[in-house]
Write a protein that binds this DNA or RNA. Structure first.
Length: 221
DNA sequence: CGGTCGATTGTCT
DNA sequence: GACAATCGACCGC
């Protein structure tokens, strides 16, 4: 297995994303080695990247304390907490000073499955172990507090070593469609920037985003 | 297996 | 002070 080349990540995440399908993210910690083969990813743009603003991106307004990893050297992991309880993992793309990234949404456990089963006790079957961004982060033991900014190209931080290997063999047909959980009717919300391997059972189900418009109003009185 | 509902906290307006 | 790149409990089939 050979590491993904950093130069290949210094490009627009929309172009990088489909090329990461079949790649393997390996995390070594005190628990042991866990590796996941990517089956589903999504691209996001920072301000200034692409022709239209990406209203669903954390970097849509420019650099902030939270999203600074996305503006740094490509190949580092932007790990953030969402909904107050789930972590999600992205690979920073675009040259330093510009922001785009690939959200790692799902994959197949190819090493350390016993470790992952212990971390993911609520999974009903093995295809659910890393099915969805929060589950994916949990399966690999990555968290926003400890691992945001770690170099995915053989970096060490927060008690883990991270490696991102290029796809090792043939990858199934790549499909694309709207990003999951992204709300709104703006053009940027309907962009087909979710990519997945066709017929891969570890790919998550599409869910439309919940907005103030379609969310149930709070009970009053 | 699939639908619905509510949790929970960091972040930015 | 609203709201989020979601998940799991719970329930029905």
């Amino acid at each position: 297995m050979r590491l993904v080349e950093r130069s290949s990540l210094a490009a627009d995440a929309v172009d990088v994303a489909p090329l990461l399908l079949g790649a393997v993210l390996r995390v070594t910690s005190d628990d042991g080695v866990v590796a996941v083969r990517l089956s589903e990813v999504e691209a996001y743009h920072g301000r200034g990247t692409g022709e239209v603003p990406d209203l669903a991106s954390h970097a849509r307004m420019g650099p902030t304390q939270r999203n600074r990893t996305m503006w740094g050297e490509p190949g580092h992991l932007y790990v953030y907490m969402n909904y107050g309880m789930h972590d999600a993992v992205n690979v920073a793309c675009s040259p330093e000073g510009r922001a785009s990234g690939v959200l790692l949404r799902a994959g197949e456990i190819v090493d350390g499955i016993e470790i992952v089963r212990a971390r993911r006790l609520t999974a009903r079957r093995d295809t659910e172990l890393a099915q969805g961004p929060g589950r994916f982060a949990r399966a690999l033991g990555l968290s926003s507090k400890r691992h945001d900014g770690v170099d995915a190209l053989d970096g060490t931080q927060g008690g883990v070593r991270v490696e991102l290997f290029a796809p090792g063999g043939p990858v199934g047909a790549v499909r694309s469609g709207p990003r999951t959980g992204v709300a709104g009717d703006e053009a940027s919300c309907a962009l087909p920037w979710r990519f997945w391997i066709e017929d891969d059972p570890t790919v998550s189900r599409f869910r439309p985003g919940r907005t103030a418009a379609n969310r149930r109003p709070p009970v009053t009185g």
